[in-house]
């Protein structure tokens, strides 16, 4: 018996090997994001190569960027911003969306109707456009980015959670709890949430991918994370001049984004039905 299958048996779920690959790449980037400052071979701002867009070498594993800075260090530190900002934003978005969604399902009536209509309307602004409009209005900083991304993806999380909660809301134990006279917080926290938590977490994973894509897109346009900080999208943005020479400085951050987002998708796609199933 392989260690992985014993591990998954411990959790009571069986992952297939594609899911395991996805999970290990996610864990790899999460670890990098945590320990990056301790393992970078060169300080991120230091110019270590006399040449710009240097090739891969023994000294600089991933070559150098447009100023001759070490690309490996910059990619490792970039993981911190890409993973950190996206995770913060998606957590806020899902928390707000899920709480509002469950409340709307339990309360119902005009509260539900108005909230749904307004959030649906917010949802019909293309995400990149909302990002551009907010950045144009208030400028770009890491905290603004987190809040903006969270606001953009709250309506989606709301819609998903509300759809699940409405199904649960018709069950007998909800009627019983209502008859007992339980308050709204008890209803959503103890009766509804435990029944929808699996699909909600899977949805959080998918939404995380959307956030990473949008954040990278904004940074790529030069409107996301601002220097001296750089996430992976910003790394592609600042090194895009190396594209005609096929410099590793522009290829590596792109690959890093792709590896993270594809892994999350693979993991979610291969989650056991027990967790993922929408009908819960």
């Amino acid at each position: 018996m392989t260690p992985s299958s014993t591990l998954s048996q411990k959790f009571g779920y069986s992952f297939n090997w594609i899911g395991m690959i996805g999970l290990s790449i996610i864990l790899f980037w999460a670890t990098i994001a945590l320990i990056a400052p301790h393992i970078v071979p060169h300080p991120v701002g230091e110019i270590v190569d006399e040449d710009y867009f240097g090739p891969m070498s023994n000294e600089l594993w991933l070559g150098s960027d447009y100023l001759g800075r070490d690309m490996l260090s910059r990619v490792l530190m970039g993981a911190r911003y890409t993973v950190g900002i996206s995770l913060a934003a998606v957590s806020i978005a899902c928390f707000c969306g899920v709480v509002l969604g469950m409340t709307a399902a339990v309360v119902g009536g005009w509260f539900d109707t108005v909230l749904s209509r307004v959030l649906d309307a917010m949802n019909s602004i293309p995400s990149k456009l909302s990002g551009l409009v907010v950045v144009a209005a208030v400028g770009s900083s890491i905290s603004v980015l987190v809040v903006t991304l969270a606001v953009i993806y709250t309506p989606g999380a709301y819609r998903f959670a509300r759809a699940l909660a409405v199904n649960i809301n018709t069950m007998d134990f909800i009627t019983v709890a209502r008859t007992r006279g339980e308050g709204i917080f008890y209803m959503i926290g103890s009766e509804i949430l435990p029944n929808i938590i699996g699909p909600i977490l899977a949805d959080l994973g998918i939404r995380f991918v959307f956030v990473v894509l949008l954040l990278s897109g904004l940074s790529f346009l030069g409107l996301g994370v601002q220097p001296p900080y750089a996430d992976w999208g910003a790394l592609v943005h600042e090194n895009v001049g190396g594209l005609p020479f096929g410099a590793p400085a522009v290829i590596v951050p792109s690959l890093a984004i792709a590896s993270l987002t594809i892994s999350v998708n693979l993991l979610i796609d291969n989650l056991p039905k027990k967790i993922r199933d929408r009908s819960a």
Partner: peptide, 17 residues
């Protein structure tokens, strides 16, 4: 799935490459 999972600019830069 690959194309959907990556940002548009990565698709564009790959096309250039």
């Amino acid at each position: 799935i690959g194309v959907i999972s990556i940002p548009e600019f990565v698709v564009a830069t790959s096309a250039v490459l």
